[in-house]
Design a protein around this nucleic acid. Structure first.
Length: 557
RNA sequence: GAUUGCGUAGCUCAGUCGGUAGAGCAGCGGCCUUUUAAGCCGUAGGUCCUGGGUUCGAAUCCCAGCGCAAUCACCA
C-alpha cells in the first residue's frame, strides 16, 4: 500500500493510477512552487537557524508592547515604528495551517516544539505569500522575522520572508488525532515522530539516558569497548541465535546473543574495567518486553564481585531515576520527586515505582521459602510443590531446575513491583557462568534485579576457574536437544583464555530497553525502539498460496 | 507456537436485523488581515485486509489465509 509513495517516481509525473489524488495534487503543487513561484522544493543550506523553542525564548514582552505602541503612533503620524523585537530565522514542518485571506497562520514543528508563524500579505513578497497560502500539512518551511505576539496572545514569528525547505508529497495523518494505529506508528515511524510529539520525546529521553550511562561508567574509570557482533560460536547466554554466512571465507557465522565471552577475554588481556553498550540478537518470540534485537550494557570489573556490581547498579539506576524528574516534567509525564524514603517515584503504567536507595535485597533461598512454603534444598518437598502447582514435566527435570521453576512460579510474584529488588545468591546449578560460593557451593554469587515485575538484569561473581568452566560447558552441551546442538558449540578458545588466567571479576548485564521503558513510562519495548521488527507486508498483488518460498524455509505442514 | 480481539476513504472513526458505502479531518475550487481542532459555500475521493463459501442479495454470516494488538509459552 505504501509502494506508490516509495517508488522513485520519475519527474515525468506519470499517470500513476495507484497514487492517491492527495499525492497527485501535492505533486502538482510542487510543480507550481518550482515553475510559477520560483522556489526550489528541495531546498538549500540555511545558516543561522534557531530551534523553535529557542526562537520562542527570544520573545520579549517589553519589546512586543513597545512595538505595539509605536505602531499605533506611526499609523496616526504616518511614520515608521521603532522595532526592538528580536529577529529569528526558523524552520520546521507545517502542522497547522489557517488561511484567513490576506493573513496566513501556520504552526511549524521541530523536535523542540511548535511555533506559530504569521504571514501577512503586506509583509512578504508575492511569491512568498502564495507559498505560505498553499503550504501543505507536512511541508518543511523556513521563515524569518521578528518574534512577537498576535492579538490572541500567541507568540509567533511575523514573517518578513518565507521559503521552502522540502515539499512533502505524502498524505499527512489526521491533524488532531495524529497517527494512533500502532501498526502504522511502527511501520511509518518517521511520520509518528512528527505527528505525535510524545514519540520524539521518548527517543530524545532514551538518547540522554544512554549518554548519562556512558558518563557514569566513564566517571568510574570504565573503558568502553566494542566486541564482535558476528561470532563463529554464539556464546554467553542460553538463547537461539540468528545464523548468517560469510561468503569470501565460506564460513557460517552467528549474530551475537551476548558479548560476555569476548568482554572476559578483555579482562584476560588486562583491560580491568570494561563495558559495552551492545546490541544483541536472539531468535526468540516477540512480546511487550522482547524484541529480536535489543540493547544491553555488560560490565566487567577485575577484582570485583557481584557485590561490587550491586553497588554500581544501584547507584546507576538511582542516578538515572533522579535525572528523570526534570526529564519527565519537561515531557509532561507523571513524576514525584520526593516519594516515601526520599526516592524519586516514576509511575510506570499502574505502578508507582519508588527508586529510593537502598533498593530491596532478598536472598533467593529466603524468597523461595516464603513463596513455596518449604526449604529449597528439600527436593522431595519442592517436587511435591511442583506437582501441586501443575508442573507436569517435573519428573524429567533435575532437582535444581525444579527449584528454579517453582521459584519463578511461587516466589517471583512476591517481589514488590514498585521497589527495585535484588534477588541474591542463586543456586549454582542454574548459573553456569558463575562462581560457586566458597562456604556453600550449592549457591553462587549471582543476583537478578527486578523492577516493575520485569527482570532488568543479572550480575555475577564471574567464574574464572578454567577446569570448572570447561566441566560446566560440557555438561550444558550434554543436555542440548537436537535443535540446540546445531548452534551450541564448546568455545574452546574461551576456555583457553581462562587458562591464560582471568582475574576474579564482577560482571553485570542491564537491559537498556527495559530500563528506558521504566524511565519513560512506556508499556511496550516497541515504544522505545525506533524501528522495531515487524513482519513484512505481503506484496499487494501476490497470490495467497504462492508456493514460491525461499528454498530452505517453507515447511509449513 | 496457542488463545482472544481488531482490520471500512490518506488519517481518526460510524455503519442497526444480511437490503444502494457514511461522518469529521486532510484534499480540490471559492470567500475572509488576528486564527488556536478557525469558520462559511461548493466539490471530489472506496479492492469495506485477501481468497473462497452460504444467500435473490454480504462491510455484515461461515471457512481459510495475511497483518496488528493483548494474554500465555520461550527468553532478557
Amino acid at each position: 500500500m505504501t509502494d506508490p509513495k516509495t517508488d522513485p517516481a520519475p519527474e515525468a509525473t506519470a499517470p500513476a493510477q495507484t497514487e492517491s489524488e492527495i499525492v497527485a495534487s501535492r505533486r502538482a503543487k510542487l510543480k507550481r512552487f518550482r515553475e510559477e513561484l520560483g522556489f526550489e522544493p528541495y531546498g538549500q543550506r540555511v545558516d543561522g537557524l534557531l530551534a523553535l523553542a529557542e526562537a520562542r525564548g527570544r520573545f520579549s514582552e517589553d519589546a512586543h508592547l513597545a512595538f505595539d505602541a509605536a505602531s499605533k503612533e506611526a499609523k496616526a503620524s504616518g511614520g515608521v515604528p521603532a522595532d526592538t523585537r528580536a529577529v529569528v530565522r526558523v524552520a520546521g514542518r507545517v502542522v497547522q495551517h489557517r488561511d484567513m485571506g490576506k493573513l496566513v497562520f501556520l504552526f511549524l514543528r521541530d523536535a523542540t516544539g511548535d511555533l506559530q508563524v504569521s504571514i501577512s500579505k503586506s509583509a512578504v513578497a508575492a511569491n512568498e505569500f502564495e507559498l505560505a497560502k498553499h503550504a501543505d500539512y507536512g511541508d518543511i518551511l523556513v521563515a524569518e522575522g521578528p518574534i512577537g505576539r498576535t492579538n490572541k496572545g500567541e507568540v509567533c514569528v511575523w514573517a518578513t520572508s518565507v521559503s521552502l525547505g522540502a515539499k512533502s508529497l505524502a498524505a499527512p495523518p489526521e491533524k488532531w488525532h495524529g497517527l494512533s494505529d500502532p501498526e502504522l506508528r511502527y511501520r511509518r515511524r518517521y511520520v509518528d515522530m512528527y505527528a505525535n510529539p510524545e514519540t520524539a520525546k521518548v527517543f530524545a529521553m532514551r538518547s540522554r539516558i544512554i549518554s548519562r550511562i556512558r558518563r557514569f561508567m566513564d566517571g568510574r574509570g570504565f573503558l568502553e569497548v566494542e566486541t564482535p557482533v558476528l561470532q563463529p560460536i554464539a556464546g554467553g547466554a542460553a538463547a537461539r541465535p540468528f545464523t548468517t554466512h560469510h561468503n569470501a571465507l565460506g564460513m557460517p557465522l552467528f549474530m551475537r546473543i551476548a558479548p560476555e565471552l569476548y568482554l572476559k577475554r578483555c579482562l584476560v588481556g588486562g583491560l580491568s574495567k570494561v563495558y559495552e553498550i551492545n546490541r544483541n540478537f536472539r531468535n526468540e518470540g516477540i512480546d511487550r518486553s522482547h524484541n529480536p534485537e535489543f540493547t544491553a550494557m555488560e560490565v566487567y570489573e577485575a577484582f570485583g564481585d557481584y557485590g561490587t556490581m550491586m553497588e554500581l547498579t544501584e547507584s546507576l539506576i538511582h542516578e538515572i531515576a533522579v535525572s528523570m524528574i526534570e526529564e519527565r516534567r519537561a515531557a509532561g509525564l507523571r513524576v514525584e520527586a520526593n516519594g516515601p524514603e526520599g526516592g524519586p517515584v516514576l509511575p510506570w503504567g499502574d505502578l508507582a515505582i519508588n527508586y529510593a536507595k537502598p533498593f530491596v535485597r532478598v536472598r533467593f533461598e529466603e524468597l523461595f521459602r516464603r513463596g513455596a512454603g518449604c526449604e529449597m534444598r528439600d527436593f522431595k518437598a519442592v517436587r511435591a510443590k511442583a506437582r501441586e502447582i501443575g508442573l507436569h514435566h517435573e519428573a524429567k527435570l533435575d532437582d535444581w531446575l525444579v527449584v528454579n521453576e517453582v521459584f519463578e512460579e511461587c516466589a517471583e510474584p512476591l517481589i514488590d513491583p514498585c521497589r527495585p529488588t535484588f534477588v541474591t545468591d542463586y543456586p549454582s546449578a542454574i548459573s553456569p557462568l558463575t562462581r560457586p560460593n566458597r562456604d556453600d557451593p550449592a549457591l553462587c554469587g549471582r543476583w537478578d534485579i527486578f523492577i516493575g515485575g520485569m527482570e532488568v538484569g543479572p550480575a555475577y561473581t564471574e567464574l574464572n576457574d578454567p577446569d570448572i568452566q570447561l566441566a560446566k560447558f560440557t555438561e550444558q552441551l550434554k543436555g542440548a536437544d537436537d535443535e540446540e546442538s546445531t548452534f551450541r558449540t564448546l568455545d574452546e578458545d574461551f576456555v583457553e583464555a581462562l587458562r591464560v588466567g582471568m582475574p576474579p571479576a564482577g560482571g553485570l548485564g542491564i537491559g537498556i530497553d527495559r530500563l528506558v521503558m521504566l524511565m519513560t513510562d512506556s508499556s511496550s519495548i516497541r515504544d522505545v525502539i525506533l524501528f522495531p521488527l515487524l513482519k513484512s507486508m505481503a506484496p499487494s498483488g501476490s497470490e495467497a498460496d504462492g508456493g514460491a518460498e525461499p528454498s530452505e524455509g517453507g515447511k509449513r505442514a
